[in-house]
Computed example of a mutant assay.
Amino acid sequence: MRAAFASGTDADNPLAALTVGERPEPVHPADDWVTVEVRASSLNHHDLWSLRGVGLPADRLPMILGCDAAGIDPDGNEVVVYPVIADPGDPRGISILSERFPGTFAERVAVPRSNLLALPAGMSLTDAACLPTAWLTAWRMLRTVGRADEADAVLVQGAGGGVATAAVALAVAMGKRVYATSRDAAKRERVAELGATAVEPGARLPERVDVVVETVGAATFDHSLKSAAPMARIVVSGATAGHEPKVNLRRVFAMRLEILGTSMGTPEELRDLLAFCAERKIQPVVDSVVPFSRIDEAFAHLHTGQAFGKIVIDHQA
């Protein structure tokens, strides 16, 4: 079957490790696994990290990439694929599709049947394919870990990427006052169109916030601390610009701040996210929809850092 996979790894030039070609049909490691016909998928920075060799050692190559997918189950139902697999062989007890089990950038993908969620009425497969990784992470950061229900104001660092842009859209839909940073003036304009107050990185906010969505890391972490209200939650799910920030511990204890780490979410949280988006008629922020025949171009675009929102792959084109 046609697939996009890591045929090797290259820390300096990850695109050089990407191959598009034929791979064997999916296998079922256990009786409860089923095969899904993939109709749409979406890219994440996780895919580029895999091509760099992060979390993907040589003994697992070649590996079909991709975490997110929506498609058709064996009974003909439209479904969304939850990408986290129980995995006793991983120290975390879990792994994400494309780490130990083949991913979603293929005509078909095998997953446990319990990892399939029904596509909500009125939601397109293209939109659904954006949700299981970046949007689910943003949802958990806000709703579960950040306790956004108790918040009035939210700061999202580095808006433009998949998780951060999702956090902006979701926090606005939750009725919060949302501030979002970006170094790119064009991205700040697009963030403002989503309903947030867009500011340059490090800019003083008109108020302190109750929740900070932090995916950037060292480059923005001091600003996150300074922008946090007493007893605020700074929720971290990434470190694209440095993973060893200097932390002013006096501010942490004096302001009684919570610094919380998280990633992904549970199947129940994905089900809640799907219902929330369907009920509020929220459409994921999509940078572009690219036919599978040009998936290498989609990877190259993600690698530039210029994408705003999700890059979706149409597997029927």
Rank of each mutant, 00 (worst) to 15 (best):
M1N: 13
R2L: 11
A3L: 02
A4I: 14
D12C: 02
L18A: 14
G21T: 02
V27K: 02
A30R: 12
V36E: 07
E37A: 10
A40T: 07
H45W: 15
D47S: 04
V54D: 11
G55V: 08
P57R: 01
P62M: 04
M63A: 05
I64C: 03
C67V: 12
D75C: 00
E78W: 02
V84N: 04
P88E: 05
P88Y: 01
G89L: 10
G93T: 01
R100M: 01
T104L: 10
E107H: 03
R108V: 04
R113H: 03
R113T: 01
L119G: 08
P120S: 01
C130S: 07
L131C: 00
T133P: 00
W139R: 11
R147I: 00
A148M: 12
A153F: 04
V156G: 02
G158L: 12
V163Q: 09
V163P: 04
T165M: 08
V172C: 12
M174A: 15
K176W: 12
R183S: 15
R183I: 09
A186M: 08
A186R: 14
K187L: 06
V191F: 07
A192N: 11
L194M: 13
V211K: 02
V212E: 02
V213A: 03
E214G: 01
A219E: 13
A219P: 02
F221G: 06
K226M: 08
S227P: 09
R233S: 14
I234E: 01
S237T: 11
K246S: 10
V252L: 14
A254S: 09
L260D: 03
G265H: 03
E268T: 14
L270Q: 07
S288W: 03
P291F: 09
S293N: 13
E297H: 08
F299R: 00
F299D: 06
H303M: 13
T304N: 02
K310E: 12
